[in-house]
């Protein structure tokens, strides 16, 4: 379903550093219904990847939709995706549009 999102881009972030290094805000039942990237920390995996930018909205994490998920649940999904040893990358489906 994510592939049907207009203007969405799949970004694969290799786990190249010990942290992912993004801050997100938003989630279901807030003013920002899908998580938005508000900070990218220098030296983190996301920064090293070079394709994530502040202001982008995260639609999916490893194919799991974040629609309807509250902030903590979305944050947990991303944290788990970074922690798991099953993959040495995280796939983010992102959009520039809010």
């Amino acid at each position: 379903p994510g592939l049907l999102e207009p203007m969405s881009t799949l970004v694969r972030v290799p786990k190249s550093a010990s942290t992912l290094g993004i801050a997100i805000e938003g989630g279901a039942n807030t003013r920002q219904p899908l998580p938005r990237i508000v900070t990218i920390q220098r030296g983190g995996s996301a920064h090293n990847c070079g394709q994530l930018k502040v202001g982008q909205v995260i639609l999916e994490v490893n194919g799991i939709s974040l629609r309807g998920r509250e902030h903590r649940e979305a944050a947990c999904l991303i944290a788990e995706a970074f922690k798991t040893k099953e993959k040495d990358y995280i796939d983010f489906l992102i959009t520039e549009f809010n």
Binding site: T19, G21, I22, A23, E25, N29, T30, R31, H71, A79
Partner: peptide
């Protein structure tokens, strides 16, 4: 517009 005003702001989480 009205709906936006009534929804709370989100917390921010560093990951």
């Amino acid at each position: 517009r009205e709906k936006r005003l009534t929804l709370p702001p989100s917390e921010i989480t560093l990951l």
